[in-house]
Design a protein around this nucleic acid. Structure first.
Lengths: 371, 371
DNA sequence: AACATTGTGGCAAACGTTTTCAACCCTGTC
DNA sequence: GACAGGGTTGAAAACGTTTGCCACAATGTT
């Protein structure tokens, strides 16, 4: 069907080894031979067979991206960053929605292993790693985003959730609020816990006592936000400001507050987390803690590709001498980064990037006379 | 590194042909031999090499998905539908953002061709097809979504944009409005033109004259919506209702109207198109024309996979006799579809699915006394 | 007792590349 | 005029599968 290297060889009266060399710009083929080959190739509509190529080089130039749900407005930007970084280096990415299900995640890992992807970026479903997956993690580089890996020594890039929770709360406190509530999703424990910890830290720092009933956890959905805040308000003596641990919940909270006949921010101020696109919509204007989502993806894939190329060099017996050079590039690039401080440590070869969240003040927390 | 079929063969004292047969559930291997093989395979952490497999079968069990921008809230749902349908059949999907650039799209098609994907779903950047791509389209199945292909006889699944434009406009007319404006993005011509055509059709049907200055086209962005509507209002004698040809523009329009000190829907009613997630947000409540995005994706990938399997059967010399059976399955499934009428025609082997858009009335077009 | 049949399983070719090794031709040098 | 040496090319093995064809044994048939 498709023309192969052999067809070209026959047509040009050279061996197919030469054709291969011509295509890979290998040294040792005369310019005019090369030109002739390329010309015939074009005429035959030749397209190199990446599968055959992959079989011999043992690399496919593709990576897997595991995320819970591309439909969740948080992930497309991360995915975009990953795709962008990958494409720059000629890699393609498999999009896999795990649907927040542990075993769908496992299935995909299996599938990607068979496809022999060169690496994996995972925004994990939960904190525990399926032991069946570990063998894969020994054979190809894996980088986590959004949450750190729990039982494996993989590299990861996350944000400082404690700090994020802290600055959100601090903002409310400095705006004059004292009775502040926290609303979160219970399922995806790790980041939530940290944001809550940041919340507690800030309150403590300013010497404000927390009433436990002002902290409510529920599902991860807009409706949950609405319900939780309605419960709070219904119970009386409700907080005058609420830190919702993600924007979707915050939207629900706003709905809930208004549905009780109260106003935002007049009666209740609201701060969210993530800065998904619609937080900035004129009608919403949600004060929130911005995660550098695109950068997170881009950084993750950069690290992944570096690890892939280390591995290749190592396999070629060149050892690990490229390592320090790469590290320098990394640091240099990190410093270019505009809106996020980057902090890296390299313990035992794993690399950890913690991006800084950043408060964005909009209308839902701006009020002339807080009570 | 990874165990191969030969390792298993050696360990179990059978030939590697037998191991292969055992794994593919081919007939002709004794159950106990098979069990022994599977056991050893598990012990060795064997994972079949899809690359080698792909080389001999000439299929990779992966498809490409080309969309303009996953960050645009319209696409994640389409992508989700595609991924879902693909996974059900054991296919994986490459996510490719073309970034609305014709030649980035071409680059990706080239790349995916080398990766030897079994098929392609394209939400095309523009209406013209790069001739360089045509050869690919002859060698693997391609299905278009969102917009029909222009120069190629590929199957496609789209919605009836004319009808969508019609019902949006009709809704405003029946709500009592007479002076109605249209705001659209000029770039992505095809669907915009059709929605505008639907708009004109509806106006004509109800005998309402259109003033051309009430039709404005600009960029495809929220800001454009704001600017266009501000121009309109600034010019005086502005429309009392506006049909914005997509939700992002509609959001911008709402902002723009409000920024001029007018209210939505009190002074100006607004209808959008797409029904992206945030149209239903309590604070927005945008009346809009819903596109069945998820279904669109799922239908597209179903058609694609059917075409792939036809091609395989054809290649195996079985001819096209499976074809009618598949067609029946298709029709049956189409009838299951709940919220979208499906209409298919099969002209010359190409298949065309036109899904029905559906009006969703929310607050931005509800007003007690339209003027 | 000879023969057909069925159930298992081995051999080897094929898929389209990359890459090692060796061979060849040419030019310049002694 | 033989020879070293560089530049250019070819032959063939390897990558890990699938699969068509053949062989062998056990069973059933006449």
């Amino acid at each position: 069907m498709n023309a192969t290297i052999k067809d070209i060889a026959r047509e040009t009266n050279v061996s197919y080894a030469t054709v291969s060399r011509a295509f890979n710009n290998k040294y040792g083929v005369r310019p005019e031979t090369r030109a002739r080959i390329l010309e015939v190739a074009k005429r035959l509509n030749y397209s190199p067979n990446g599968i055959a190529r992959g079989l011999v080089n043992k690399r496919t130039k593709s990576i897997g991206l595991l995320i819970p749900d591309i439909t969740n407005p948080y992930f497309p930007e991360v995915a975009r960053g990953i795709e962008e970084g990958a494409k720059e280096q000629g890699y393609s990415v498999f999009l896999c929605n795990t649907n927040w299900e542990q075993d769908r995640q496992a299935q995909y890992i299996e599938l990607l292993a068979e496809k022999r992807v060169d690496g994996l970026v995972i925004a994990p479903v939960s904190n525990s790693v399926d032991p069946a997956q570990e063998r894969l993690f020994n054979s190809i580089p894996v980088v986590y985003v959004d949450r750190p890996p729990q039982n494996t020594p993989c590299s990861y890039v996350v944000i400082d959730n404690i700090r994020g929770g802290f600055i959100a709360t601090q903002h409310l406190i400095e705006a004059g609020y004292r009775k502040i509530g926290f609303i979160g999703a219970v399922e995806q424990s790790m980041p939530v816990d940290e944001r809550l910890e940041g919340f507690r830290l800030a309150m403590e720092r300013y010497g404000i006592a927390i009433e436990e009933r002002d902290i409510r956890l529920g599902h991860f959905s807009q409706e949950a936000g609405t319900n939780l805040v309605r419960e709070m308000i219904g119970a009386g003596d409700y907080p005058r400001a609420i830190f919702a641990e993600n924007d979707l919940l915050a939207f629900g909270v706003i709905d809930g507050v208004r549905s009780m006949g109260l106003s935002v921010p007049g009666d209740v101020a609201v701060v969210g987390f993530d800065d998904i696109h619609f937080a900035s919509f004129e009608n919403v204007q949600l004060t929130t803690v911005c995660q550098p989502k695109y950068e997170m993806g881009k950084t993750a894939v950069r690290i992944l590709l570096e690890e892939i190329s280390w591995k290749e060099h190592a396999a070629m017996g060149k050892g690990r001498n490229g390592r320090h050079a790469d590290r320098n590039v990394l640091t240099a690039r990190a410093e270019e980064t505009v809106n996020a401080a980057v902090c890296e440590e390299a313990t035992g070869g794993r690399r950890v990037v913690i991006l800084e969240p950043r408060l964005i003040v909009r209308k839902t927390s701006l009020v002339s006379h807080p009570q």
